[in-house]
Simulated scan of single mutants.
Amino acid sequence: MAYDIEKPDEQWRAELSPAEYQVLRRAGTEPAHTGEYTDTRTAGVYSCRACGAELFRSDTKFDSHCGWPSFYDPKDSDAVELIEDRSHGMLRTEVRCSRCGSHLGHVFAGEGYATPTDQRYCINSVSLRLTPDES
């Protein structure tokens, strides 16, 4: 797929920290319970750390106790791209930023969370940047 923001790999490596690059550009996963936004309650907008696209609002964030920030819905239906992921011997749905194609995490459905969508967007903190709402 063509993205609005496309850069050579060398440029991504120069602009991102090694941990950010591993997750955002190589579809890695940060260790559970280590991300800066796992337990954050600050009101605001979560954006893609690679390109700044607005992805999720804090009012859709919920406690799933899975070890990563969880959201039940993206800020805008066009904010993320969903891709079938058959890696690791299972079927999952990968979540990418629709603006730059960066890996964010995975989305799961039907787990029984009391959310309006019954979905859990399990997103790596290192993929996000939180901009707090102005008071």
Score class of each variant (00 low, 15 high):
87 S>A: 11
94 E>M: 06
135 S>Y: 02
20 E>V: 02
114 A>T: 03
4 D>I: 12
84 E>H: 11
37 Y>N: 01
112 G>S: 02
82 L>E: 15
103 H>V: 04
94 E>C: 08
67 G>I: 10
68 W>D: 08
98 S>P: 12
73 D>I: 03
122 C>S: 03
18 P>V: 06
80 V>R: 00
27 A>D: 14
73 D>Y: 04
14 A>V: 05
10 E>P: 08
2 A>R: 10
58 S>Q: 06
69 P>S: 09
37 Y>A: 08
10 E>N: 08
20 E>M: 06
15 E>N: 03
111 E>A: 00
134 E>F: 08
43 A>Q: 13
104 L>V: 04
1 M>R: 07
71 F>R: 00
48 C>P: 13
23 V>G: 08
22 Q>A: 15
11 Q>E: 15
68 W>A: 03
106 H>A: 09
62 F>S: 01
51 C>A: 03
60 T>V: 12
124 N>P: 11
107 V>A: 06
53 A>C: 05
70 S>T: 08
27 A>W: 10
39 D>I: 00
102 S>Y: 13
15 E>L: 11
122 C>P: 00
43 A>E: 14
121 Y>H: 15
8 P>N: 04
27 A>S: 14
67 G>R: 05
120 R>D: 00
58 S>T: 06
110 G>N: 01
2 A>S: 14
72 Y>E: 11
17 S>D: 09
115 T>L: 09
100 C>N: 05
44 G>A: 04
73 D>E: 15
75 K>L: 15
26 R>K: 15
119 Q>D: 04
24 L>T: 07
99 R>K: 14
70 S>A: 14
63 D>W: 08
22 Q>D: 14
7 K>W: 09
85 D>I: 04
7 K>T: 05
10 E>T: 10
51 C>N: 03
120 R>S: 00
77 S>Q: 13
87 S>W: 03
31 P>D: 09
97 C>P: 15
90 M>L: 13
124 N>M: 10
104 L>D: 10
126 V>A: 06
98 S>W: 01
48 C>A: 03
39 D>G: 01
25 R>L: 12
31 P>V: 02
29 T>M: 10
38 T>A: 12
50 A>G: 10
31 P>R: 00
85 D>P: 12
135 S>L: 13
44 G>V: 09
105 G>V: 05
3 Y>G: 06
55 L>N: 06
76 D>V: 02
106 H>C: 08
79 A>Q: 06
102 S>H: 07
7 K>M: 14
106 H>F: 10
16 L>F: 08
86 R>L: 14
5 I>S: 02
3 Y>Q: 08
25 R>Y: 12
83 I>Y: 11
6 E>Y: 11
28 G>E: 14
59 D>H: 09
123 I>M: 10
103 H>P: 05
40 T>G: 00
101 G>L: 05
13 R>Y: 03
98 S>I: 04
85 D>T: 01
96 R>Y: 11
27 A>Y: 07
105 G>Y: 09
125 S>V: 07
126 V>H: 07
